[in-house]
């Protein structure tokens, strides 16, 4: 069986600057992979190339064996790639429930004509969407906030909502950009327990993470980038003993995490 994601020799240049140089790795179905690296190592750039925001300068990206290089962000979402952003990004003026309903966009059947004519099918679909959105909220334990506006949420809940929106698309591959960053110890534990538990049961997960405690405790495998090159690809547990990785992180406080 094909891996869910194959990154083959991906390079990304911005002018003369090489943000990524021939990065290759695979992610197997059901895996929880951490993408690790110091600031500026190219993690976010790699996320953006996989998610279709910025196509790679060279190399290929395959989703379950199909070449998806250069596809747009919304096309990739329809093919089953979902992602969160490093900065908490929500539909700020909508409620928590409405945010998740928007995440269900690719599963709505509210064709324009049904909605225009207010056919029974339209009401049926609206009810079905709300039910599914409630299901996702319950899964992440934030259903009590359903009617609150997204821009009024505390950070911990807001970050869970970003995962809920992405999960609502029912992705094959979920890319989480620093899901635990900025959270308190308890909030981070709650988030990562969910990611490694309920979320992981539903899709393959790749996450960017700085915190070595989180990588070691929750992830199967880690890929480490430095200056846009892959310097480590192996068991997450072995990460802290690898000389190259220790060297790259030397003096970085988060190593202790």
């Amino acid at each position: 069986m094909n891996p869910v994601l194959e990154v083959r020799g991906v390079s990304k240049r911005f002018g003369g600057l090489a943000a990524l140089s021939e990065v290759s790795f695979e992610v197997a179905r059901g895996e929880l992979l951490a993408l690790v690296g110091p600031n500026g190592a190219g993690k976010s750039t790699l996320f953006n190339t996989i998610a279709g925001v910025a196509p790679p300068t060279a190399g290929r990206i395959l989703l379950e064996g199909t070449d998806v290089t250069g596809k747009s962000s919304h096309a990739l979402a329809r093919l089953g790639v979902a992602r969160t952003f490093q900065l908490v990004t929500l539909f700020r003026e909508l409620t928590v429930l409405e945010n998740v309903v928007q995440g269900l966009h690719r599963h709505t059947r509210l064709a324009v004509l049904d909605g225009l004519l207010g056919l029974p099918r339209y009401r049926e679909d609206t009810r079905r969407l709300a039910e599914r959105a409630e299901g996702v909220l319950a899964l992440l334990g934030i259903a009590a906030h359903r009617h609150e506006r997204a821009d009024a949420l505390p950070l911990g809940i807001a970050k869970l909502l970003t995962v809920a929106i992405a999960l609502a698309t029912e992705p094959r591959l979920l890319l989480l950009d620093e899901p635990a960053a900025g959270l308190s110890h308890d909030e981070a534990t709650r988030m990562m327990d969910l990611v490694a538990g309920e979320v992981r049961k539903r899709c393959t997960v790749v996450l960017v993470e700085h915190n070595m405690r989180i990588v070691g405790n929750y992830c199967d495998r880690a890929v480490v980038l430095q200056f846009g090159r892959k310097i480590y690809d192996g068991a997450a547990a072995g990460l802290v003993h690898d000389p190259a990785v220790v060297d790259a992180y030397l003096g970085v406080a988060e190593m202790d995490g």
Partner: peptide, 8 residues
């Protein structure tokens, strides 16, 4: 950007 990421 978020909308694009969910397929809109």
């Amino acid at each position: 950007r978020l909308a694009e990421s969910v397929g809109i």
